[in-house]
Design a protein around this nucleic acid. Structure first.
Lengths: 343, 343
DNA sequence: CTGAAAGCGCTTACAG
DNA sequence: CTGAAAGCGCTTACAG
């Protein structure tokens, strides 16, 4: 059952290679009768065009490169789901790579994608300046770039994320409305999102006339191992809880930090919400079976993925690979599931 | 900053195209001096070979196709992580597709992979006979196939999973040793794993001299929506709990069923483990923050991925794409994390 | 409406 | 040790 080519069809049917090619791509140059005849023959013999010959000829690869910190993180795996569902039956190919939030690895992956001739790149970037410069260069060379999740970077391109300021503001408001005034804010170091999230926190406190306390602003590097991050959190939390002014609530500004903070609180024996309320970013589908059921900020992860693909396919499908009128910064709506952990 | 080709180098250096090609692939035909000179020039000018021209010439695509039920399921996303880490800096390309455990979609994806000319396929198959037949055909045509997770199918190829019988036997033993004799076993319909898991359950009961009760053997189709599965579970559980012989423990034989069963138990107000103990398959990294902390069967998901790639790269890298001596059925070790839910 | 020919970027027998 | 030439499977001006 060897693969059949245009040449085979041409020989079998007594047409030239060019005619077969044109008939199969439905060219108007070919007479309807011949076209039908050829297409029928091709179908019956299971002809499938060789993508690589096509792409070589057209100078394209149809590869969309994607870099995320970790596929195992449900937030990113859901984004991936969203892309895959749209893409699977197209001729595009997705290549996925994990940066582990390591700038060096990220840069290596970008170089690899360039080497593989990726026609577009989707990335949740670490924010490392070398990577950003590389992205800028790719963009200048004509490769469309879509920044997802972490969008607050000074590069003028397509961006898809959420309104970080707003959803954090809402989350903090909830805590305040439940009588919490001493709110610990824990975020990671990603400049792509943490600025806006922190701004939401600070502005909300200000609007509620709550004094700002720098001890309540915690930044944790999450690209070290899980155990290390957990230890750090435990130490910080023990310290704060035993301080003269212990926090009454925690807001965690990333999925991983939410899970690890909850784990740390369990480990050091602090009851949630009795002792300390908690609300945080979390996209795992089953946060309602957490101890306690978790008040979660949920992002439209699937939609982030599907929109990224929508934008790219629009650009790549346009004959001259033209960049759309204006770069868009799409801010989708995140939602808050209020549950026991913040009661 | 246009891409530079072999032709460009040939023109610039005054060598023929063939010589450049051979020098870059380190052929012994070329004199060491010339080779160094050419390689240096290529490096300095950022030459990157066009994979597609290469593959077209060699009749290969270097595409590895992968089909899993759902990328969002942490178990499968971890397998993906395992593959990606090994593969990212190679010239192989992974194409991922989701079957949603839908046989029709699975078959469509397989056809797509064949159309794209995948050089190999990695699949957690539904077990649908049309798909299995298609896989068999691909295999017969020379495409290496690796079955992951669901390995109990009558197709003679590479298989990577766990010793399902053994780990279930151990899990059930734990429950029995804690005094439970009425154990409800909930599994999905996948023939690739559920047979062996069920066998472990039944054999364990037998060895402990516990009467087998068919009411305690529950099979749930998990490819309908999440809410639907949840409803089913709630109904079944309410019925059983109120029966004349209510179960004392539950063993859930898939990740999704574990989460949903716990959710169902919460919803209908059954306390775990006080009222009913629970132990189940679960690969989410943070099952210790569940309510209660979950006794989990954890599979070596990353290793399943990395081994799949290891096998394939070995086959595909061998010049004649030869199938290795014998097909292997690799059974990795799963582990049991015993925690509060089964106390 | 159909065909002959060039070429995408590469590799590899075959000569010399 | 180096080069000329054919060919992987396709598309597309250009002729006729």
């Amino acid at each position: 059952m060897k693969k059949i080519t245009i040449k085979d069809i041409a020989k079998a049917m007594g047409y030239s290679i060019g005619t077969i090619s044109k008939a199969l791509s439905n060219s108007h140059e070919i007479s309807p009768v011949t076209k039908v005849e050829i297409q029928k023959f091709a179908n019956e013999h299971g002809y499938q065009s060789n993508q690589y010959a096509k792409l070589l000829r057209k100078g394209r690869t149809n590869i969309i490169g994607m870099i995320v910190p970790s596929i195992g993180n449900p937030f990113f795996s859901q984004i991936l789901e969203g892309i895959e569902r749209e893409m699977s039956e197209t001729t595009y190919n997705l290549i996925i790579m994990q940066s582990a939030d390591d700038p060096k690895l990220e840069l290596k992956h970008l170089e690899m994608l360039s080497k593989k001739g990726a026609d577009a790149v989707v990335i949740a970037a670490t924010g490392n300046h070398l990577s950003l410069r590389y992205l800028q260069r790719l963009k200048d060379e004509g490769t469309p770039i879509v920044l997802i999740d972490r969008t607050n970077y000074a590069i003028n391109t397509y961006k898809i994320g959420i309104d970080n300021f707003k959803v954090v503001y809402q989350g903090i408001s909830q805590l305040v409305n439940r009588g919490k005034r001493k709110i610990l804010f824990i975020s990671n170091l990603s400049p792509g999102t943490s600025m806006e999230r922190r701004r939401g926190y600070i502005q909300c406190l200000r609007d509620f006339d709550i004094a700002y306390n720098s001890d309540y602003l915690l930044s944790i590097a999450t690209n070290s191992g899980r155990m290390e991050v957990l230890e750090q959190l435990k130490n910080k939390l023990i310290h704060l809880v035993n301080s003269s002014s212990p926090p009454e609530a925690i807001f965690t500004a990333s999925d991983q930090l939410t899970y690890l903070t909850l784990e740390a609180l369990h480990a050091i024996g602090i009851a949630v919400p009795d002792h300390l309320a908690l609300i945080g970013f979390a996209n795992f589908q089953y946060t309602n079976i957490f101890q306690p059921s978790l008040s979660s900020i949920v992002q439209p992860s699937h939609e982030i993925g599907s929109q990224a693909f929508a934008i790219l396919s629009k650009i790549l499908d346009s004959s001259d690979n033209e960049i759309l009128a204006a770069y868009q910064n799409i801010e989708l709506q995140a939602s808050i599931l209020t549950r026991k952990s913040s009661e």
